[in-house]
Amino acid sequence: MNEFPAADMELTRLLVVSDVAVSRQWYEHVLGASVEREYESACVLRLLGSWLLLVTGGGPTDDKPDVTFAPPDDPDRVSAELIFRVRDCRSAYDALRSRGARFLTPPVDRGYEIRAFFRDPDGHLFEISELVG
């Protein structure tokens, strides 16, 4: 009998991007991801022990007949984000900015955490967050 989840399973986060090559370069250079595999319209990355799949958009298929994949059409409307828990938010901010990350604001101290947000080339939202105390 199969168990879900099972110990040998892994989770992959899929992001729809407008240009796989541009995004691959950004994820490698800015976030330090490593390329595991590349396909014509997709790229599999490894980042902090997790899988990240970058794909171009596409229309419905037999197994998802009413679903269209598309990159964000409005970066100010977000339904998901990826969060990096860091030891020092300001240091991470400086390191990421030096590699080309564009932040919405400098780190903000909210009392219980210090955090800052940035986007990838297609507008997917990322957060760096340091717990305080």
Rank of each mutant, 00 (worst) to 15 (best):
residue 4 F to G: 05
residue 5 P to D: 10
residue 5 P to T: 12
residue 6 A to V: 07
residue 10 E to C: 11
residue 14 L to S: 13
residue 17 V to H: 02
residue 17 V to A: 04
residue 20 V to S: 02
residue 21 A to H: 05
residue 21 A to T: 14
residue 22 V to L: 10
residue 23 S to F: 05
residue 25 Q to S: 15
residue 26 W to S: 06
residue 27 Y to P: 04
residue 32 G to F: 06
residue 38 E to Y: 09
residue 40 E to N: 13
residue 40 E to G: 10
residue 44 V to D: 07
residue 44 V to W: 07
residue 45 L to T: 01
residue 46 R to D: 10
residue 47 L to C: 05
residue 52 L to M: 12
residue 53 L to H: 05
residue 57 G to M: 12
residue 60 P to N: 06
residue 61 T to R: 09
residue 62 D to K: 13
residue 64 K to S: 15
residue 65 P to Y: 07
residue 66 D to S: 08
residue 68 T to M: 06
residue 68 T to S: 12
residue 69 F to P: 00
residue 71 P to D: 05
residue 73 D to T: 14
residue 74 D to K: 14
residue 75 P to L: 08
residue 81 E to I: 03
residue 81 E to Y: 15
residue 82 L to N: 04
residue 85 R to Y: 13
residue 89 C to H: 05
residue 89 C to V: 02
residue 90 R to E: 08
residue 90 R to I: 01
residue 93 Y to C: 03
residue 94 D to K: 14
residue 99 R to K: 12
residue 102 R to C: 12
residue 114 I to D: 01
residue 116 A to T: 03
residue 116 A to S: 07
residue 121 P to N: 07
residue 121 P to F: 01
residue 124 H to P: 03
residue 128 I to M: 09
residue 131 L to K: 13
residue 131 L to E: 15
residue 132 V to F: 08
residue 133 G to L: 05
